[in-house]
Amino acid sequence: MRVTFRILRYDPERDANPHFESYPLELDDRAVVLDGLVQIKDFADSALTFRRSCRQAICGSCAMRVNDREHLTCSTQLSEVVRDGTVVVEPLANLPVIKDLAVDMEQFWRKYRAIMPFLIPDRAKPAPEKEYRMANKEARHLQQFGGCIQCGACYSSCPIAATDEEYLGPAALAKAYRFAGDPRDSARRERLKIVSDERGIWRCHTVFNCTEVCPKGVEPTYAIQQLKKLTIRRRFGLPV
């Protein structure tokens, strides 16, 4: 397959502004976007910078904007996205660019840390002998939210995160629900307090971009709506 890669290049030591560069490639019909990037790095410009690791959609390193939509480049076939023989590859939006296609994820992680992304069991109760059990139904309900690989695709797609660096964003909020909705967790109220903010759940305008682009089938919008519901119950003194 003949395909032209248009890549948004930016080297902070040389360029004042990012600019597009084109690379005509010949690739296998079944090739994924990442194959093209690797070929460019190997044969055209070894300075091209991007993150990639596992190549099987589990490490979450290689999310980028391909033709104006967030994709894991390792699991997106060219045939899915190519238009008029061209594929436009840009770094994730809403995050500062370090170089070329690599972005600085620090603010993403900072928000991730802010929502206490770990289970807090009830210390007052004796620890179970084997494991903390939960009902099958509850586990299945939460499963998708545990499936997040923190690639940042949702964060990049969110128009709210675009204008507010302090907005917690879909990934952190979905993770907050993954624990706030967990029957084994004892810190639900505290979690709900953290997310109940103008920079948290109340800022989500249900645009659904995050749900649209998630490569792992997580529905951050759904999670945020559950958090809103729980918070309303908490604020009105109903059991949560």
């Binding site: 900072r110 840390r113 109940s196 903010d197 920079r199 800022r203 604020r235």
Partner: peptide
């Protein structure tokens, strides 16, 4: 228990909850 923070990291800016909730 609270948010995990790196040394020297500023906490997330938050407003009073009622300001955003109501």
């Amino acid at each position: 228990m609270a948010a995990i923070m790196r040394p020297g990291e500023a906490p997330m800016q938050t407003a009073r909850e009622s300001v955003s909730f109501w």
